[in-house]
Design a protein around this nucleic acid. Structure first.
Lengths: 127, 127
DNA sequence: CCTCCAGTACGAGTTGAGTCGAACTTAGCA
DNA sequence: TGCTAAGTTCGACTCAACTCGTACTGGAGG
């Protein structure tokens, strides 16, 4: 069992103040499809996004601009939407900002070990 | 290892000695890229191929026709080549047949847990 | 030699995804 | 009221990938 030692923090989810904005439309945990999730992660930029959200910010939602990716906003919107529709991230609207975090609990439950692979990934260069 | 408790018909044992045909060109273990591997597995047909090779025949090579997939030969060649170039399978030429098996050791070493996800996958329908 | 067969190679058609500019929407704030 | 900024939406372009028919190669067996 290679993925028995999880380096990814399990559901260290934030103490939700319960007045959070509702998440944007996303697939339910039972609807997550492995081939869709893998396809979403096959893009290096999206893999970078998920890994950064996973490693550096499990506790907080972060706006799209937080990642510091030098791409047009419309490109980032495209990738965030792809990640959300694949079920990898959850997005909430905070005023003008749309903050995202990885659905760690759902993904660990449905695809155990997957996030460990993402966390262990080494980006080839600066995307 | 998902198929460690797997009984295999002894009649289909291949000549194991060191006079195996050389594998077709494939990436070295250190060259395996997670995003490439995930992209190769994001196609349902390829995911089906890898899973079937993994679950039903990890010890033996199998010709392309063994899977019983109802697709044109040129399509199958396309997907087998994609899997080989991504580093997921190894292919050897036996006379007219080209037999394939999953690179279990390499993949478990480089991406531990990945093949468990493949083995646990449930295909949506008949591809 | 010739035929058969597994699989490849090549090319065309089609689709889908990534990239991005430009215009738009909306919240916060002066 | 109007400005600013975060992010979306739309459309267009490019390019890669999937599909598949057809022609081809190369070994096995007559």
């Amino acid at each position: 069992m290679p993925s028995s030692t999880h380096t990814v923090p399990a559901a260290r989810v934030l103490p939700e103040p319960a007045d959070l904005p509702a998440p944007l439309p996303e697939p339910a945990p039972a609807e997550l499809r492995l081939e869709t999730v893998l396809g979403a992660l096959s893009d290096p930029l999206r893999l970078f996004i998920v890994r950064k959200l996973l490693l550096e910010s499990e506790r907080f939602d972060h706006p799209c601009s937080w990642l510091g990716i030098d791409r047009p906003k419309s490109s980032l919107t495209h990738h965030y939407k792809a990640l959300r529709e694949a079920g990898l991230i959850r997005q909430r609207q905070y005023g003008l900002e749309r903050r995202s975090h990885v659905r760690v609990a759902d993904l660990n439950d449905r695809f155990p070990g997957l996030l460990d692979l993402v966390a262990a990934w080494e980006p080839p260069a600066t995307p």
